[in-house]
Amino acid sequence: MSVLARRDRALTPEETEALLRDRLGDGIIGSTLAHRMFTVHVAPSAWVDTFTRCRDEPLLDFDLFDTLHGVDAREDGFDVVAILYSTSTGNRLCLRTRCEGGRDTPVCPSLNDVYRGANWMERETWDMFGIEFPGHPALEPRILTVENFEGWPLRKDFHLASRVAKPWPGVKEPAELDEDGNVIERVPGIGDAPGPYVLDEAMAAQAIALRQVSAAIDAAAGNEAAVASAEPTVSDATMPEASAPASGTAASTDPAAAADAARTADEQRRAQAEARARKAAERAADETPEEQA
């Protein structure tokens, strides 16, 4: 066996399809040739036979089992795609089928007896999409995810929890810009997760508290007049909403909050003094055993 020994006798896509149609009849639903890839659509009932033919038919001779994976086909359920390659003719063939059972119980026959390599590929597809492969020796335990993982990660209705809980902080992603670079407001759909912005609110509240502390420190340093003259603008309760980032320059100056903050600053200073004292005591304690020794 040598590489590309029969390249001159390689079948064209049309001939391949004609040959498969001749051997399998109605099992072949159709074919597409797009983006330099020839795809044959196969009925699930003829799925295993097609691969056996592709492997054993001397004219086809697809000996390298390249890959097998699932694709989410929206409302119609799931597709299973497998790619074969022939090392003697240099042809590549993509076979595609629509799983039976819709989105709830997708089922596809197993290729494990035709190509050894299908074993793990089908386990992975089951792990990622929940597609059952009758005839497979053991789909469980889950091959990639944790054994007690719940859900089928690559289905489009599986949302990434991190994206729901925490939208991208700061700058918007390029994926959310239109051609002119403007931010697009999107309605959440399948696969999108703008989320409740809990974190943003928390961060805004934190920023306000910080600003109050610094204002209070200023006040303690002798700028009391400046703080007192400023008018109370927004109450704490409404802060975390949209107004929070906008109020960047006008330091929040609710009198109660300012008093609070001043107290905090005082406490901080007292804590620092205490820490210094403690350190001095420690130093003294360190030295005593030394002298004894």
């Binding site: 066996m1 590489v3 089992f65 890959t67 090392t87 240099g90 190509y115 050894r116």
Partner: peptide
């Protein structure tokens, strides 16, 4: 053996070691 390697989808140095020079830099 080469046929087992191909059926499993083994490629690269592990496949070349079986004696089959299937390298997409040459074949495709």
């Amino acid at each position: 053996p080469t046929d087992v390697a191909l059926s499993l989808g083994v490629t690269g140095p592990a496949l070349h070691a079986t004696g089959l020079a299937e390298d997409s830099r040459v074949t495709e």
